[in-house]
């Protein structure tokens, strides 16, 4: 899933301060899972903003709404009328959702309330970890299902670097060295020989070769 964290209240206030009626729109998918942009977080943010503006001496009126997915066009139909009846939208979706909504409203400012972070997993309640870069050429087979692009600070295909000590990364003594994890796992699988191979450089054209990527499938189209 895509993870995100809330921007500071000050940054959010500065974006929406000039408006009279602001729709605060949550998203019930990934950002709800990571407790950043679901219905609960919308309610908290609206309460917090209302109080903060009250202390300032006034601010926009805020309306709460949450849809299942802001990144899927048909779900955005639900936001069509509420968006039109407000001056601006503060979206608690990821960057994809904010843009999908904005695309439909040329005459409305759509502001992000979150900083979109990464593709990752919910390891345990309250702990989310990055583990995929979306490179477009999954090589997890070679690395025992631990991605060196997503999880090694230097994205080494032929690691570990000289900074791996006691199983931890040189950038952060709390963080596991992805290469130590790869070696341990392949060792357990009896497949350490996979690491004698010299892996070719990543083909970044599959990620960013011609700008934003597109997946188009006629069989899925209406």
């Amino acid at each position: 899933m895509i993870t995100a964290t809330r921007k500071s209240l000050d940054e959010i206030k500065n974006m929406i301060r000039p408006y009279t009626r602001v729709l605060v729109a949550g998203c019930g998918s990934c950002v709800a899972e990571c407790a950043a942009g679901g219905e609960k977080e919308v309610a908290q943010l609206v309460s917090a903003l209302s109080m903060a503006f009250k202390i300032e001496g006034g601010g926009p009126s805020l309306t709460e709404v949450t849809v299942d997915r802001q990144c899927v066009n048909i779900f955005l139909d639900e936001l069509e009328d509420p968006t039109r009846s407000h001056d601006a939208v503060l979206s608690l979706a990821c960057g994809a959702g904010v843009q999908a909504l904005a695309e439909r409203h040329a005459d409305r400012n759509i502001f992000p309330a979150l900083d979109t972070q990464f593709l990752g997993q919910t390891k345990s309640p309250g702990l989310w970890l990055e583990n995929c870069l979306g490179c477009g050429q999954c090589k997890l087979f070679y690395f025992g299902a631990i991605c060196p692009l997503g999880r090694c600070a230097k994205q080494l295909f032929n690691g570990p670097c000289g900074g791996s000590q006691n199983g931890k990364c040189e950038t952060d003594s709390e963080k596991p060295c992805a290469w130590q994890l790869i070696i341990d796992r392949l060792d357990g699988l009896g497949a350490l020989n996979r690491l004698e191979e010299i892996y070719e450089p990543c083909d970044w054209s599959l990620k960013q070769g011609r700008g934003p990527r597109k997946i188009e499938r006629e069989d899925q189209q209406s």
Partner: peptide
């Protein structure tokens, strides 16, 4: 922390 941010 949120109350601090709000100014309360």
């Amino acid at each position: 922390t949120l109350l601090d941010e709000i100014g309360i």
